[in-house]
Each structure stands twice: as structure tokens, then as C-alpha cells.
């Protein structure tokens, strides 16, 4: 399928990525080439085929094991805020939301 500039802008908005005007054309060309290659999959007959499990079979029963519902220590607040670009009074700080 052919992807339009508007389509690219829509996807960029979903992904919270921003492209400048001059980048869009080159990006659209590369994106289209990759999309064209992926179209290959259309040739595969998939009627009646189940999805692959989201976690490969090798993860085994342990992948679905539950632990006891017991609270254990986690990161201290200071550690959790250690890489915060901005923080204050034990919270992450961001620009005004409303």
C-alpha cells in the first residue's frame, strides 16, 4: 500500500515523534520502501492459522506462575527520582498539564 504524507504525520502524532518539513519527504521514501518489502507477507496463506503465542512456548509454565501476594521492599524514593530531569518534594515534576 502507498503511504501518504498525512498518514506519516498521523503515525508520528501517535508515536509522539516530531518531524520537520524538510525531513518528511526523505523519511516517507524510506518508510515506503520498508512497507513495500513487508507486503511480502500477503502471499502467505493464513486461513485457519492460530496466532503465535505472545510469549514463546519455551517460557513454559513458569511464565504463568504467580507469586504470593506479599509486599516486598522496592526502590527508595530517592533512588527512584535519581534520574529525574526535574523533581520536587518526592515527586517527578513536569510542565503544566492543564
Amino acid at each position: 500500500m502507498s503511504v501518504t504524507r498525512e498518514e506519516i504525520l498521523r503515525i508520528a502524532e501517535l508515536a509522539k515523534l516530531h518531524f520537520e518539513e524538510e525531513e518528511l519527504d526523505a523519511f516517507t521514501v524510506q518508510f515506503q520502501r520498508i512497507l513495500d518489502y513487508i507486503e511480502k507477507l500477503r502471499a502467505v496463506p493464513i486461513e485457519g492459522v492460530e496466532d503465535a503465542a505472545h510469549v514463546p512456548a519455551s517460557a513454559g509454565p513458569a511464565g504463568r506462575m504467580l507469586r504470593e501476594d506479599r509486599v516486598t521492599p522496592s526502590l527508595a524514593v530517592g533512588e527512584a527520582l535519581g534520574n529525574a530531569p526535574d523533581s520536587g518534594r518526592g515527586h517527578f515534576k513536569v510542565p503544566k498539564v492543564i
Binding site: 513487508i38 507477507l41 502467505v44 493464513i46 492459522v49 492460530e50 496466532d51 503465535a52 512456548a57
Partner: peptide
């Protein structure tokens, strides 16, 4: 796309 890819993944498996 993704839905189809997950089925092809099953076939490869």
C-alpha cells in the same frame, strides 16, 4: 500487518 505477522510467526515456528 501485526495480526498477519503473528500468524506467519506461528507458521515459521
Amino acid at each position: 500487518y501485526y495480526g498477519r505477522a503473528m500468524k506467519v510467526r506461528r507458521l515459521i515456528q
